[in-house]
Every structure is written in C-alpha cells, then in structure tokens.
Design a protein around this nucleic acid. Structure first.
Lengths: 124, 124
DNA sequence: CTTGTGTTCAACCATAGGGTTGAGGACAAG
DNA sequence: CTTGTCCTCAACCCTATGGTTGAACACAAG
C-alpha cells in the first residue's frame, strides 16, 4: 500500500511478530504453518504477515507442492542500512562540530534559526 | 503506543514525512514551524510527527521561550543498526552456506522442515 | 472422484494513525 | 492586562492494519 520501498520495509519491521519471523527465517526457510506454530494467532494472520514481508521485498515465496516456503531476501536490508547510516553519520558529525560552533558563538547569533520572531504578521 | 523500543523506531521511520524531518534535523535543530514549512500539512500534524519521533527516542525537545526546538538523538540509530546487521549477517551467512548444504543433500532429507506431512490428523 | 493438507481470499470487527479544525496554554512585547 | 506568536491538546474523520471466522483454491493421495 505504501508508495516508497523504504516505508514498506520500515513498516514491515515495525511489528514484533514480523521481526521474529524474519529472525527465524535467517535460520532456515519455512512454510506458513511452521512459522505460525510459535505464535498464538491463526495461520491466516501469519499468512498476512508474510504477505507484508513479501511486499516489502524482505522475503520471497517459492512453491513446493501445496506449500509456499518463505525465503529471506537480503537486498532490502541494504536499503535500510544505507539510509540509517547516512543520517546517523551526518547527525554524529554535526554533533562533533557542535562543540566548535558553540565555542565560537556569541549569544546573539543563532545559526539554526534564521527566522527570528519578527514584530508581527511576518509574511513569507 | 507500541511496547518495545525497536517497534517504535521502525514505526516512526515508516513515514516519509518523518524520515524527511529526521534528514533535515541532521543539518540543524529546528522548531515545529520551521519543520512544517516545506510540507503542505498543518503545523499540528507536524507537531504530532515530532511527538512520534520523540517517543521513539529519535529526537529530544528543548525549550527556548515559546519555541520547542527539536534535536536529533543518535543513540536509537544503533538499536536499529544492530538488529538489522545481526540478521542481515546471519541471512547472508546462511546464503553462503546454502551451496554446501544443497551439494551434500539427497532429496529425501530436508533439514529445514522436520515436520513432513504425516498421514492425517498430525497432532501437536 | 473424494478426502485431506497447506495456503490464501473475502468479509468483517476493533483499534491505531495521519489528517483536519478549533480551543487553549506558555511566553514576549506593547 | 492585552495582543500576538509558537506550540500542544481535544475532538473528530477516514483509512490502514492486525486480528478473527468461513469459504475456496491448489495439490497429493486414496
């Protein structure tokens, strides 16, 4: 349903059950029934979860007779990792710089807020 | 609302607007109004988003007169990174091993599925 | 064909989420 | 105190989501 892939992946992993399923799928592929066993929800619910994971690109489904084993895909992990690391790095770098900035900053200068409170009716 | 921290963080980042806010906060702290400017939603909506990010531990709020600048926190990133890397590593390792396993595996042995379809009424 | 197993589809229910509008609280400045 | 700015709270709407049950589809096997 969600448009962008990143949202789908994050959203898929926002559920503890789904995260646990992913964790278990790192051990081995598994069918819906196998996956459903530990949880106290219906098989249909697990099937839905699996669909969410599949839509997010986290798992692929194959066919073995009546069974549809789920297999974990690792590509999408990179998507998240890259996003996270990118901004984590930027944030931490900024954090490091902050000391310098603060050290050379008099009180009447505020670099982060170029928009000081004007008199009134400050348009644009 | 979500119990565990990991769910909260993933859930918080499952929204494109919130991810964009995080991205912008890596550049500099910002107030609600500043954050709201680029989006065509109300300030209240952005305030809610900010609350979600704060509840997830991704941002902290400070007080500057009437303003409540948001500051990005980097700790929580580690939480995600660790989870992701852990299972990504396990998945990729398993992927590498798979070749070996398949090579030494006759058709009638299936290590991943100890529960072959029994006659009928397979209890437990 | 009939039965049985594994899985999904469809309809439905309850709750959470993102959005809105409107009111109100916290401060700064007249 | 009154006004104005920044922000949040509350109520409400609508859709998404996770769960259920019941039916149906896909195969395997009698």
């Amino acid at each position: 349903m969600a448009a962008d892939p990143l949202s789908r992946v994050f959203s898929a992993l926002a559920d503890p059950t789904r995260r646990d399923m992913v964790a278990r799928l790192t051990v081995s592929d598994a069918t819906v029934n196998e996956l459903a066993e530990p949880y106290d929800v219906t098989v249909q619910a697990v099937s839905k979860h699996l669909k969410v994971l599949a839509d997010a690109g986290l798992v692929s489904r194959t066919r073995q007779a009546q069974r549809r084993p789920a297999h974990l895909e690792t590509e999408v992990f990179d998507l998240m990792t890259k996003w996270i690391e990118r901004y984590q790095r930027r944030a931490e770098e900024r954090y490091r710089r902050l000391d310098d900035v603060l050290a050379s900053m008099p009180d009447d200068v505020e670099p982060t807020a170029p928009r000081q409170p004007p008199k009134t009716g400050a348009g644009t």
